[in-house]
Amino acid sequence: MSAISELSSLSRRKGRATAEEKKANGRDNKAAYIFLLPWIVGLVAITIGPMIMSLYLSFTDYNLLQPPEWTGLDNFTRMLSDARLHNSLGVTFTYVFIGVPLQLAVALLIALVLDKGLRGLPFYRSVFYLPSLLGGSVAVAILWKQIFGTTGLVNQVLAMFGIQGPGWISDPSTALGSIILLHVWTFGAPMIIFLAGLRQIPNMYYEAAKVDGATTLQQFWRITMPMLSPIIFFNLVLQIIGSFQSFTQAFIVSGGNGGPSDSTMFFTLYLYQKGFGQFDMGYASAMAWVLLVIIGIFTAINFIASKYWVFYDD
């Protein structure tokens, strides 16, 4: 929620920069709302209604086939004693805390490598982006098994060294790890955003640094990182939001059951099972709002922390 507090600092800074403008006409309410018109119409007509509906449903017993019945906080108290839900929270947090930094690091590294000074860059970029094109295709499960199955590529390589590897996706102790790898594998989206961000850094900064005799590493920390920080911040915020809601990959690889032994039972996968598998949409809605609060807290922390490391040019 306190994306807000960060924005307040942003507007403070902006206030300084645009004193002139303020003198002229104060706020740009009219212009702003015209620019925001499509978004506001969408919010009111499409987004907010169903959201509030789901909030209402979270206080009901709703099985999809019959009208919902008000049960107050019942769904929320049930969550306290739902061991599988607690397990799914653990799985999701592990995934977010390991998967997000890992994927962003890989994406940034590759983006930097693919940014300059090499022939055939468009080709490499496309190759590295290819896995992300697959999205939630049904083929992903099959392909992933070709690599991490009991007789997959990894174990074939290990066998050359006389090592008998486990069934990476079917062993409860390694299954989550293989899903995290799958996530890292599809780093294409943040990579592209990084690349687009790198394009925006004015070249003269590097030239000036070079005149001053700065090393590549110094250039990276003094120019690239600060100039790219709004984009890094964007990727971080969105990846955290997205990873908390991660669903498709685990759904496809485990065949929808979060197996083996619930080791890849993500929060949203459990939510989906409750809502559509067991017709307990009231409980699923309550779960969704709990997740929203969790994501909201992390996003707020992100926005507060961003004051200390994100550099805006305006």
Binding site: T150, G167, I169, D171, N257
Partner: peptide, 16 residues
């Protein structure tokens, strides 16, 4: 089969 193989077979489609 081993536990891993059983779990893997479970998620596999019929023709695999």
């Amino acid at each position: 089969p081993t536990a891993s193989e059983v779990v893997e077979a479970e998620a596999a489609p019929l023709d695999q």
